[in-house]
Nucleic acid binder design. Structure first.
Lengths: 196, 196
DNA sequence: CGTCTATTTGAATGTACTCAAAAGCGGTGG
DNA sequence: CCACCGCTTTTGAGTACATTCAAATAGACG
């Protein structure tokens, strides 16, 4: 399997020598996913953190009223898991599903704990990863609080043009916290304003 | 100054020997804040991460329409800063204000970077801190997306009873993403349902 | 006590949702 | 190759949740 992408991802924040890199790679397992296949199902134990090697995944939460809230999308070069449950050991609350044929590297919680102890550089790596994730999530909260659905959609288009290509509209709506019908109406209004 | 609280906070995740603890404390500076005094003002450089030793702080963002979005509250034993700007070096987007007379320990970005290198255990400590912050923020996003204002207020009461005592209602409203008038109406409705 | 700010109240408005149905689109099998 | 099936997106009418604005009331602090 081609481990260059994940190694270059790690190399963005820490320098590994070749034996550290080899050890890290030895802990990973590679997995293919068909479109609509699930990497994690709500209720199951969340034992892995996943690095997307190819394709696109979606993390979503099934609400009480049988609706879905999309937590995040992850394309190649992104990490994704149910972090609350990965950390706490509780059963997963979210489901991870492939939006198209995809491939991931998986690292188990036990192996990650071992890795932290054997190669402490990974403490730094995941510290930076968590820090960035926190920052992204906080900015998202800020936008949810201070902006209208229309503005949030605008920011989403700017920030994640890749997702707009690859994710069905109804999932984008559920990421923005609006109904698909309303997103459709927003888009129509935008088109009417700009084209004629 | 009494450094026991901050040392016990660190001790929750990593064990420091006495020289490491002494070194850590030597990097901290202590600061008192009067009620309404600001520890950080939007537009200024965000040079410090802060540990609340006493009192309560609020982090808020001033929106385009001159309204405020409350990002978080922090009581004693919590860490707070404008993380996006602390990390990136950009000018602060948020303001940190004391809701009552308070006291904080401050650690500068440069000193923290030095600390990471001299005492790598702090990589682990802040990795866990960032991880917890990310998890909290993601759960908040989830609630914002999937719950009504009424439910969000209910969860807030359960999760942060301390804040409800200490923060004025209008700030709680702006944390929940609703207007003070609407929170007042919600509370009235709750009272009418439960008391008679 | 008086002033200033926070909270409450109420009416009118707007933003986003629900429900239902039609139209569009993609994949699959005949 | 195209016709059909299932799923996504669009459209529209009626409704609910939350906001705005204005004014009254209540609380905090000097």
């Amino acid at each position: 399997m081609d481990d260059r992408l994940i190694l270059s991802n790690v190399a963005r924040h820490v320098d590994l020598d070749s034996s550290e890199a080899a050890y890290f790679v030895s802990l990973l397992s590679f997995r293919h996913l068909r479109k609509k296949e699930r990497l994690l199902e709500a209720g199951q134990p969340c034992a892995h953190i996943n690095f997307v090697a190819a394709g696109i995944l979606r993390a979503f939460y099934q609400t009480a009223t049988l609706r879905e809230a999309t937590i995040m999308f992850a394309v190649a070069d992104w990490w994704i898991t149910d972090m609350p449950c990965f950390v706490s050991g509780q059963p997963a609350m979210i489901t991870l599903e492939a939006l198209e044929d995809s491939a991931v590297w998986q690292l188990s919680k036990e192996d990650l704990d071992t890795l932290y102890n054997k190669v402490p550089k990974f403490e730094r790596f995941f510290r930076i990863l968590m820090q960035n994730a926190y920052v992204r999530e906080q900015l998202r909260t800020l936008q949810n609080l201070s902006q209208s659905a229309d503005e949030r959609y605008e920011r989403f288009l700017e920030k994640y043009p890749a997702f707009v290509q690859q994710a069905p509209q109804k999932y984008i709506a559920s990421y923005l916290g609006i109904t698909p019908e309303f997103l459709s109406a927003l888009r129509k209004r935008r088109a009417d304003l700009k084209l004629p």
